[in-house]
Each structure stands twice: as structure tokens, then as C-alpha cells.
């Protein structure tokens, strides 16, 4: 870059293009997408045994089973809040080390708000539905998957993709949400290994997708100059 003043009427197109390139470079340097996905993958995978051992299952003589996923309620709210705090701190520290400010706060706040919403919805459901059994249509079950921990991870990632203007993350999140919404994380997958495994397999798939995303973004991240 030269230090000469650009004469008025020079090449504004080039000047504007340079400004955009510099802004794009800053946004790339502020990103720590791989770390966010890694934290979320670890939280998801560690959550599987909590759901497995925290689930109370009561099978009736007619072959049907009632279950309560207490492990999800006890594990996920604090785990997600800690995860968003850890991601925010990591972003700020990495950006500061590179000599930049961070723009992660809206993501962390969205994640925390969605966590509170999920907790409220699940507590309300746990208190109401045992005494008022209802068979929901599939559209309600999709909404339920969206406000479950695996769904809200994706919703918050959409916010991160927006604030980072990160098209790759947006595409990844679209794929992740498609997987999280298609998998029956709220009624269990039909497996031959019992009801606990029925719930564990979708969580394992979500965790692995996040882990693969973390590896992919780590491989393509911009190294500081």
C-alpha cells in the first residue's frame, strides 16, 4: 500500500474493493468457528451418558414404555451455558491475541436465551404431560426437536454465521439442522438395543456432525500472519 493521497476522480472502484478486502480479512481473522463447533461437539457427546443413565423407563405389561429424560434436564442447561461462556471467552482471547476486537457477544447471548427457552419448555412439559397424555402431530414434534438442545445449537449457529458473514458456516449449519430435525431426538430412533440406545444414536450422530465440522473448519482456518 502506498501513502499517496488518491486524487479525487481517481479509481474509486479499486479503493472500495480494497476497503472490502480489508474488512473481509478482519472478519476471517476474528473467526474461531472450529473451536465453537468443537466445544459444542464435546458437550453433545458428553451428554449421551447423562441421558442414558438419567433416563427413568417404566415398561407396562402391554409392551409400551413410559420414560422421563431427567438427565437431559439436569445436564444440558448448565452445560450449554458453560459452553457459550467458554466459546465467548475463547473468541475474545483469540481475537485479542491477533490484535482485534471480537464480535461474538450476540451469538453467546442468543445461545443463552435459547437455553433458557428450552429449559422452560422441557420443565413445563415434564410437569404437564405425565398427567395429560397427548399424541402430537408430526409438525409439533419438529418444533419440539427445534427447541431441544440439539436444535438450539443449530439455531444459535445461524446467528454466528450471520454476525461473521460466514457462508461456509451457514451451509454447514443448514446441513446440521437438517440432520438434527430429521433425527427423532425426542421420541427415539427405532433400534434393536433398547429405548436408551434409541435416544443415544441420534445424539451420537449430531455430535459426530459437529465434530466433523470442527475438523473441517480447523483445516481451512486462516493462519495469522
Amino acid at each position: 500500500m502506498t501513502t499517496e493521497s488518491m486524487p479525487a476522480g481517481g479509481d474509486p472502484r479499486r479503493l472500495l474493493s480494497e476497503v472490502r478486502d480489508l474488512a473481509r480479512g478482519v472478519r476471517r481473522d476474528q473467526r474461531l468457528t472450529w473451536a465453537a463447533l468443537l466445544v459444542l461437539a464435546v458437550v453433545t457427546l458428553v451428554g449421551i451418558p447423562f441421558d442414558w443413565f438419567g433416563m427413568s423407563v417404566r415398561c407396562l405389561p402391554d409392551g409400551s414404555c413410559e420414560f422421563a429424560r431427567r438427565g437431559v434436564l439436569f445436564y444440558w442447561p448448565p452445560a450449554l451455558l458453560l459452553a457459550y461462556a467458554a466459546i465467548a471467552v475463547s473468541y475474545v482471547r483469540a481475537a485479542r491475541a491477533r490484535g482485534l476486537g471480537a464480535r461474538v457477544l450476540p451469538y453467546a447471548v442468543t445461545g443463552a436465551v435459547l437455553t433458557v427457552l428450552f429449559t422452560a419448555a422441557w420443565v413445563a412439559a415434564a410437569l404437564y404431560f405425565p398427567s395429560h397424555p397427548v399424541r402430537f402431530p408430526s409438525s409439533v414434534l419438529v418444533l419440539d426437536r427445534l427447541i431441544a438442545p440439539w436444535g438450539i445449537i443449530g439455531l444459535a449457529l445461524l446467528v454466528l454465521a450471520r454476525i461473521e458473514r460466514n457462508v461456509a458456516l451457514l451451509l454447514f449449519t443448514g446441513g446440521y439442522l437438517a440432520v438434527a430435525l430429521a433425527l427423532p431426538t425426542n421420541v427415539g430412533l427405532s433400534t434393536p438395543w433398547g429405548i436408551r440406545a434409541d435416544f443415544a444414536v441420534p445424539q451420537l450422530i449430531c455430535g459426530l456432525v459437529l465434530l466433523l465440522g470442527a475438523l473441517g473448519f480447523a483445516r481451512t482456518r486462516r493462519r495469522p500472519r
Binding site: E4, M6, E18, A23, V26, G99, L100, G101, A102
Partner: peptide
């Protein structure tokens, strides 16, 4: 002015920027 415009563009996008980062970029 190209350099000053560059400084403003970087600092605006970054919220804040350190001297060393500006010098490198």
C-alpha cells in the same frame, strides 16, 4: 487517502484494532 481509509475500514470492522495488526495488514 488509501492508508487512512484502510485504517478506518479495519478498525470499524474489528471494533478495535492493535497497532501491530494494522501495520501487518
Amino acid at each position: 487517502q488509501r492508508v487512512r481509509l484502510g485504517i478506518l475500514a479495519i478498525v470499524h470492522e474489528a471494533r478495535r484494532a492493535e497497532f501491530g495488526y494494522l501495520r501487518t495488514e
